[in-house]
């Protein structure tokens, strides 16, 4: 029995087909598992293990290396505030404190209503609009306590539903189709290209 919904399962199988080795689909597939469950459930991990030809311990171990994967349930919105060097110089730490107060939960935890999880992040590569805030890995560009509070209220009221999907959904643009350069065709092309090259080298010699 598949734990993945049929659409997720299908996308997961499509992913495997994109790589020369099935394990390569691990990270994108873990994102898919999070898209379904919001975090990495034991069942999701087991299914990823099955599809990538690994053990659940390996999937768990691999996932736990990466900050974006959550092995415990998180809020619908994961709010990340950067405090790294550029944001630090722009008051990132104080900003994070404010966020914690506004959301009513300490850094690294989830608000009582289960809606928000607050994280302190490393540099999010948007340093000209510091301090940088991401919600579910979408830049929200709220650099003052006031704009932050307004943004949180908008999230609560659903005004930002289009911009910020719930946690786990990462890439909403789906790849159109699988691989197109068929293996045999590619091998033939390599052969032709090599012949052409050799011919040219020959003619240059003459």
């Amino acid at each position: 029995m598949s734990h993945f919904r049929s659409d997720i399962r299908q996308r997961a199988e499509e992913l495997v087909a994109l790589y020369p080795r099935q394990r390569s689909a691990m990270l994108p597939m873990l994102h898919l598992a999070q898209e379904q469950d919001g975090y990495l459930s034991d069942e999701g991990i087991a299914e990823v293990a099955e599809l990538t030809g690994t053990t659940p311990a390996e999937v768990r171990g691999t996932a736990a290396f990466y900050d974006m994967f959550h092995l415990e349930p998180v809020g619908k919105y994961v709010v990340g505030v950067c405090t790294n060097i550029a944001c630090l110089l722009a008051g990132g730490e104080e900003f994070l404190e404010h966020a914690s107060k506004k959301l009513g939960c300490p850094v690294g935890s989830t608000s009582d209503d289960g809606l928000f999880t607050l994280e302190e992040t490393e540099c999010l590569a948007d340093c000209n609009i510091a301090p940088v805030v991401q919600v579910n890995h979408r830049y929200v560009r709220t650099t003052t306590p006031e704009t932050f509070d307004a943004m949180i209220d908008d999230l609560r009221s659903g005004k930002l539903d289009h911009d910020v999907p719930s946690h786990g959904t990462l890439i909403r643009v789906r790849r159109s189709g699988g691989l197109r350069a068929a293996r045999q065709e590619v091998a033939d092309q390599r052969q032709t290209a090599k012949a052409a090259r050799d011919a040219r080298v020959e003619s240059e010699k003459k």
Partner: peptide, 26 residues
Amino acid sequence: AEVAGDAQIDFSGRGDLIEVAQSPTQ
């Protein structure tokens, strides 16, 4: 992983938080 071919334990986490872990399901 290498000798037994059965990676029932693996590293989990990163940096100095790395620990050996098994899967709760296995």
